[in-house]
Amino acid sequence: MSITKQYLKSKPECKITFCVPAKEAEKVEIAGDFNAWNLTELKKFKNGNFKGQFNLPVNKEYQFKYIVDGKWTNDAEADAYKWNEFAASENSVVVV
Rank of each mutant, 00 (worst) to 15 (best):
M1K: 04
S2W: 01
I3V: 14
I3N: 09
I3K: 07
I3G: 08
T4P: 00
T4S: 11
T4M: 05
Q6T: 15
Q6Y: 03
Q6E: 15
Q6P: 00
Y7Q: 14
Y7R: 12
L8E: 07
L8Q: 08
L8D: 08
S10N: 11
K11H: 12
K11C: 06
P12T: 13
P12C: 02
P12Q: 11
E13N: 11
C14F: 03
I16K: 02
I16T: 13
T17L: 09
T17Y: 03
F18Q: 08
F18K: 03
C19G: 03
C19D: 07
V20T: 04
P21L: 05
P21C: 08
A22Y: 02
E24V: 04
E24R: 09
E26C: 06
E26R: 14
K27A: 09
E29Q: 15
A31F: 01
G32I: 00
G32M: 05
G32L: 04
F34V: 08
N35I: 13
N35R: 00
N35M: 03
A36P: 00
A36D: 12
A36S: 15
W37K: 11
N38Y: 02
N38Q: 10
N38P: 00
N38E: 14
L39E: 09
L39S: 12
T40Y: 03
E41T: 15
L42D: 01
L42V: 01
K44N: 01
K44R: 04
K44V: 08
F45G: 05
K46Q: 08
N47H: 06
G48H: 06
N49L: 01
F50Y: 15
F50G: 11
F50M: 06
G52P: 01
Q53C: 11
F54Y: 12
F54A: 07
N55L: 13
L56W: 05
P57I: 05
P57M: 08
P57R: 07
P57D: 10
P57Y: 09
V58Q: 15
N59R: 08
N59D: 14
N59I: 05
N59C: 06
N59V: 03
N59W: 10
K60I: 04
K60S: 09
E61I: 04
Q63K: 13
Q63V: 02
F64A: 04
F64W: 10
F64P: 00
K65M: 14
K65D: 12
Y66N: 12
Y66E: 08
I67P: 05
I67D: 05
I67W: 02
D69T: 12
D69F: 05
G70V: 07
G70A: 06
K71R: 12
K71F: 12
K71D: 12
W72F: 13
T73N: 04
N74C: 10
D75V: 02
D75L: 06
D75K: 01
A76N: 09
A76D: 02
E77H: 02
A78C: 10
D79M: 10
A80V: 01
A80C: 02
A80E: 09
Y81I: 01
Y81S: 05
K82M: 06
W83V: 05
W83H: 04
W83F: 15
N84H: 03
E85H: 09
E85M: 09
F86M: 08
F86S: 09
A87W: 11
A88D: 14
A88H: 11
A88T: 12
S89I: 01
S89Q: 10
S89C: 10
S89M: 05
E90H: 09
E90V: 07
N91W: 06
S92Y: 03
V94C: 08
V94Y: 04
V95R: 11
V96F: 12
